[in-house]
Simulated assay, not measured.
Amino acid sequence: MKREQLTIFDSEAVRENLSYPDCIRVVRDAMMALSAGTTRQLLRTMISLGSGRTFAQMPGALGERDMFGTKAISVFADPHSPGLRRHRGLVVLFEPDQGRPVAIADAEEITHIRTAAATAVATDALARPDAKTLLIVGTGGQAHTHLKALPLIRDFKRVLIWGRSFDKAQALATDYPHLAAEAVADLPLAAAQADVICTLTTSATPVLLGEWLSRGTHVNLVGSSGPGRVEVDSALVAAGRYIADSRASALDAAAEFLVARDAGLIDGDHIVAEIGDVLNGTVPGRCSDEEITIYKSLGHAVQDLAAAAHLYRSSRR
């Protein structure tokens, strides 16, 4: 009997075939399905391999009769630049009829694109319709992908970029002349001017403080994906309408939420909804133009699998 070969998507194939509009669409559908209970996933498991070295697995299924699989990924700090971390691994996709593995995709590239796509989905649902100023906090790979995804859901008139290195922020801004992006040195001032803020850092301590924000700001917390590292202070968490990509995951691994809870500033009910609940219309997202909204992104297997399934099905067509 003839055996079908695995379809392989290396990093270049992922970049060429997983467009941001398509990824935004499939991630939106995946998050709606996750909150509706029609997809299944387990909390990620992480094995420490020493300081700055982690191996993680994220299994899930897109539905009872749909694709399923896992993401296996290493997260290693760069020995020459300890603040930088690489996410290297594979997304392995199985078909639902016979349980055959059908595709393997580069996990690092999928993670870069689907994370920004998920932020775009949340921003579209939670930011004010008239949001005009975007602030990117961080200058790494996720800054690039977010600068590609966020303008697809809002017509930003100003794009501000802040990094610990002003030179890196300036270099990043020059890569996006069509957005008229500009590097900024004064983060408090930029935060006060922004309508949408994305924190995309590896910082272990807060880089963004709640007292800097103006009313009506929407904040995407993306950089920290596990307990320990926090990008914003507890005052910001407590002040915002807090919406997670997954309630269970936030209670397990959302560092900023856990720190604020352990300090007694909030409790579990501070998570008002999952983003899928907002998209499904079961819980309102933004309740007023004055409200600060927060989206906590931890990343999920169903996002990776939805992206990989789209790649596979598109290649079959």
Rank of each mutant, 00 (worst) to 15 (best):
H146E: 03
D175E: 14
A149I: 06
R154D: 07
R128G: 07
L172T: 09
I113D: 07
V159W: 08
V91R: 11
E109P: 00
Q142T: 01
V92R: 01
D97N: 14
Y176T: 03
E211L: 02
E95M: 04
A143W: 04
R158T: 15
T217G: 00
P101Q: 14
G216M: 07
D195E: 05
G163M: 07
L179P: 01
A107T: 10
K168R: 14
I136M: 11
P101I: 11
H144L: 00
A125Q: 03
G163I: 05
V207H: 06
D195F: 09
K168L: 05
G210V: 02
Q98M: 11
G99E: 09
T205V: 12
Q170D: 15
S165I: 08
I113W: 13
W162C: 04
G216W: 13
L90E: 15
R164I: 02
T205R: 15
W212I: 02
F94A: 05
K157N: 12
A116D: 12
I110E: 13
D124Y: 07
H112E: 08
A127T: 15
V159K: 04
T174F: 06
F156V: 05
R158Q: 15
R114F: 04
D106T: 05
L147H: 11
H218D: 05
T115L: 10
L172R: 10
D167W: 01
P188W: 07
S165E: 09
Q193N: 08
D175I: 00
H178S: 11
L213H: 03
T133G: 00
A116G: 08
F166R: 01
T201K: 10
G163L: 02
T139I: 08
C198N: 15
R114Q: 07
A118G: 12
A183T: 08
W162G: 06
R158I: 09
E109D: 12
D106N: 14
A204I: 02
D175N: 10
D124K: 08
E109G: 06
A125L: 06
A181N: 06
A183C: 04
C198S: 11
L209I: 10
K148C: 02
T199M: 10
L187R: 07
L208W: 13
D167Y: 11
L90T: 15
V196K: 09
A171K: 12
T145Q: 04
L187P: 00
G216K: 03
S203Y: 12
A192S: 15
K132M: 00
D106C: 09
G138Q: 08
H144E: 05
G99N: 02
L126W: 07
S214Y: 07
P101R: 15
F156H: 07
R164H: 02
T139R: 08
A103R: 06
E211I: 01
P188K: 06
Q142Y: 05
L135M: 05
W212C: 03
L213Q: 10
K132V: 04
V91H: 02
T174L: 05
G138A: 06
V219W: 10
T202Y: 14
P151F: 14
L213G: 12
A105K: 06
R158H: 15
L189R: 15
T119F: 01
T133E: 07
V91W: 06
V219N: 03
P101Y: 15
T201G: 05
T133C: 02
L135P: 00
D186L: 04
W212A: 00
V159H: 11
H146D: 01
R154H: 12
I153Q: 14
T217K: 03
G138N: 07
A117E: 08
P151T: 12
P177F: 11
P129H: 14
D124I: 00
L152Y: 13
